[in-house]
Amino acid sequence: MSTVPSELAVESEAKGALPTGGAPTPARRVIATLMKSPAVVVSVCIIVFIALLAVCAPLLAVITGWGPYDFDKSAIDSDLGGIPIGPLGGISAEHWLGVEPGNGRDILVRVAYGAQVSLTIALSATLVTMTLGVVLGMVAGFFGGLADQIISRVMDFLMAFPTLIFMIALLSALPAGNRPVLLVIVLSIFGWPYTARVIRGQTMTLRNSEFVEAARASGARPMRIAFREVLPNLRGTIIVLATLAVPGYIGTEAGLSFLGVGVMPPTPSWGQMISTAVGWYAVDPMFFLIPGTFLFLTVFSFTVLGDHLRTALDAGDAA
């Protein structure tokens, strides 16, 4: 569930030869190709919208007049066990997307703050796993030998783990502390091997290519070859992997929060809102539909963008 079970041994052998050599596709051409697809344009618009929602969450709280933790007893019917007053989960001029049953907190504002939490965690985890994965994958693929042995064994070990169970166990055993930071750490520990494995494979192919040979013959040092010759050629793969990693982490964070070990209340998070909504789904379906739709649209848009990027960049097996 966490990271996309990527890349398989046989598959990589069949396709590994594809993306070698060749100049990286010019960015402008890739963007032009992408913009021709309506699906990509819509996805980018949704991502921008969600990002704006996250950034403007405090502003939204000021405009609507409701903070993410403000209870509104007048918006719920205490005689009916706290069901929101009004149609569709209490949608009104006061509360644009309705209120939470039971306490009357504004759903729109909480969804916006939830977007903030979700995106921050997913982007940080992506940054950390990409850095770790690229560095370790390149070291393993480029230098081989003992370094490769050690890194590959650690990757095998981490990927054999029942990841979800272990993440939950670890997060539930850890002290409360700063949950978002803990989440980023735990997601990163189990996430980097999936990046490193792909990078390692591609580095190994690139290492034997002619331009690397040429650089070596002209006396370039290994570090220079790694960073100036190999790394630029991995750019496409890294962009695709990163784009596809974000929705994976958003989904995992939401899943962990849903199970009650992720972001802790009262801090809002989409997964946690859906988890609270489980008790109300029969009487107030809007409470799970709204955060669920936001979660779905975000993950969906990032996945569409990543898929198209992969095709456009022809990053081959970077799935």
Partner: peptide
């Protein structure tokens, strides 16, 4: 694409509803 983007607890709630 929808299947891989929809969290299973959300699908579960939707289906049950």
């Amino acid at each position: 694409l929808a299947g891989i983007s929809l969290p299973n607890y959300f699908v579960a709630l939707l289906l049950q509803y």
